[in-house]
Each structure stands twice: as structure tokens, then as C-alpha cells.
Simulated assay, not measured.
Amino acid sequence: MQTILVTGANGQLGNEMRKVATDSGNQYIFTDVSELDITDREAVFSFIKENAVSVVVNCAAYTNVDKAEDDFGTASLINDRAVENLAAACKEFKATLIHVSTDYVFHGDKNVAYTEEDFTNPLGIYGKTKLAGELSVQVSGCNYMIFRTAWLYSAFGNNFVKTMQRLTRERDTLKVVVDQVGTPTYAGDLAALIFKVIEEKLYVKHLGIYHFSNEGVCSWYDFAKEIAALSGNVCDIQTCNSEEFPSKVKRPNFSVLDKTKVKQVLAFKVPYWKDSLAKCITELAAASK
């Protein structure tokens, strides 16, 4: 039996990992900052050693893209220094680190899907600190898998799906940007992939960087339209450009991720984004009853 540590367990992906782990014969330990502060190097080393952890799944991250612009210190601490601590401990105790990163490590100036080998060039502090975390893992000497994902949502926490459900229910009209294109990712699907990697011990032979989102391509406008339709909300959703919503940070205009490697190497069937969205909205509806 393996012991798997899941950090950031109260977030969207962490909560989905809790759900899939109920089907495992392995021991999963779920921690958030109150149980294990991953910015504390000594605490990380002690925890991994004492619990004989063989795999660490790091779901913890500083994800407030706008706030990060004014809070480099905290963003860097969580997205880089804490990741470095986990990687160093994994190296020391011969554990494998499964780390979750982001499409924001890319500039967003392509028009074809980003592969794992593409040049990274983040636009803002969030992307820069996440990329720094990736590099800290790579130079640590530990065994690792990095999963870059995008537009994450779930039935847990705050996310675009829940916000659009509320806004399209409360308002008659709404403007949503059409000039940012990518692919939504249901956190339950990413959790299922990570669970498969752990349970089948795919991390033994297939280390490295992988891209994962759902299949298909859409704009935030398309995403919002589908959320409203599946939720049964009648709202006149109109297109607009990013310039109409001034932000401290420029987001990638194009962040579609190429999933070829995940499909071929890890033999994972990637669900289409509309199918996964329907699944999540059904889950949300059931939870609200």
C-alpha cells in the first residue's frame, strides 16, 4: 500500500481528489494549511518522512491573478518556495511529486495548441511565479510529473461556472469577453487523471510535463452561453473585448493546450468540455436541493 499526500486539499482540485480517492486501497492523506504549512520547509520534511509518503500531489496554489500583481511576495512563497520545499523533500525521501501548473506560463500569442515543449513566457506575476515553481521542481532532482491545466472549475469553491450561473440568473443582460480563447477544465476530470497515474503507478515510467484540459476550444463568451443554457437561465449574453474590462494583468488571448501526450502516453480519454460542464451543473443542481 502506498501513502499519498495531497496538499491544498480544500481547494477545487483537492476536493475532487478526496472524491476519487474513496475508491482506492492506498492511503491518502489530505492536508491544507492548517494541517501542513508547505511554506515551512522543516514541517514538510518531517511530515513526508514520518508518514513514509511515496507520492505527493500538490494542489496548493496562489491563484488570484489580479491580486498577485500587488502581492508578489505571497504568490512567490506559495507558487514557488513552497513547491521547492515539496520537491526537495521528495528528492530526500525518494517520493514522486505530482505538481499542478497552469496555461498562464505561456504568452498566449499562438494560434495553435500549446505543446509541452513550447517556449514559456508568462505575462503577469501569477504566471511568472507558477513558472518559477515548475523550474524549482525540474532542478530539484526529484521524480516529478507536472500537469499544466486551464480554466479550472468544479462544484467546489468559487469559479467562473458558479459566477456565471448567479449573474445569468440575476441579470437580464451580460457582457462576456470573446477575445480570450481556451478550454475549460472540469477539476473532476483532472482528479481522475491524477488518480489513474497514482493507482496504475504510471509515474514510475512516465515522468515529465503534461498538458491537460478538456477537449474542444471556446471563448469565455461561448463558455458563459453554455453555462446559462445548461442552468436554464434566460439572459441576453453579449460579446465584448478584454479592453472593456480593464485589469492589472493581461491574460493570455489564446491558451489552448495540446493533449496529445496525455492521450498517447497515459492512455487517458479526455472528455469534451460541454459534456463535463453538463456533469458539473447536474452536480451543482443536486447539491442545491
Rank of each mutant, 00 (worst) to 15 (best):
T7N: 07
T7D: 03
G8Y: 03
G8L: 01
G8N: 04
G8E: 03
A9L: 08
A9W: 06
N10T: 15
N10Y: 07
N10W: 03
N10Q: 14
G11H: 00
Q12W: 05
Q12T: 11
L13S: 04
L13C: 04
L13P: 05
G14W: 07
N15C: 15
N15K: 14
N15D: 09
N15A: 11
E16L: 00
E16H: 10
E16W: 08
E16D: 10
M17H: 01
M17E: 03
R18F: 06
R18V: 08
K19I: 10
A21Y: 00
A21I: 04
T22I: 15
T22V: 15
T22A: 11
D23G: 11
S24T: 12
S24L: 08
S24P: 05
G25I: 13
G25N: 13
G25A: 10
G25Y: 10
G25P: 07
Q27L: 13
Q27C: 11
Y28H: 12
Y28P: 09
Y28V: 06
Y28W: 15
Y28N: 10
Y28T: 05
I29A: 13
I29Q: 09
F30H: 00
T31S: 03
T31M: 08
D32E: 12
V33P: 06
V33R: 15
V33T: 14
V33W: 12
S34Y: 12
S34F: 13
S34K: 14
S34H: 13
S34M: 13
S34N: 14
E35G: 13
E35Q: 15
E35P: 01
E35H: 07
E35N: 13
L36H: 05
L36K: 02
L36W: 00
I38H: 04
I38L: 02
T39G: 01
T39R: 09
T39S: 13
T39E: 04
T39M: 07
D40L: 02
D40S: 05
D40F: 05
D40Y: 05
R41N: 09
E42A: 12
A43Y: 04
A43K: 14
A43S: 14
V44E: 00
F45M: 13
F45S: 11
F45A: 12
F45R: 12
F45H: 10
S46E: 12
S46T: 14
S46A: 13
F47I: 05
I48R: 00
I48K: 02
E50Q: 13
E50V: 10
E50I: 09
E50G: 11
E50T: 14
N51W: 04
A52H: 15
A52Q: 15
V53P: 11
V53M: 07
V53Q: 06
V53W: 02
S54N: 15
S54R: 10
V55H: 07
V56S: 03
V56G: 02
V56R: 03
V57F: 00
V57R: 00
N58C: 06
N58Q: 10
N58A: 08
N58D: 14
N58M: 01
N58V: 04
C59K: 01
C59M: 02
C59W: 03
C59G: 02
C59Y: 01
A60F: 01
A60S: 13
A61N: 03
A61M: 08
A61E: 06
Y62V: 01
Y62R: 03
Y62L: 06
T63P: 05
T63E: 02
N64V: 10
N64C: 11
N64T: 10
N64F: 09
V65E: 03
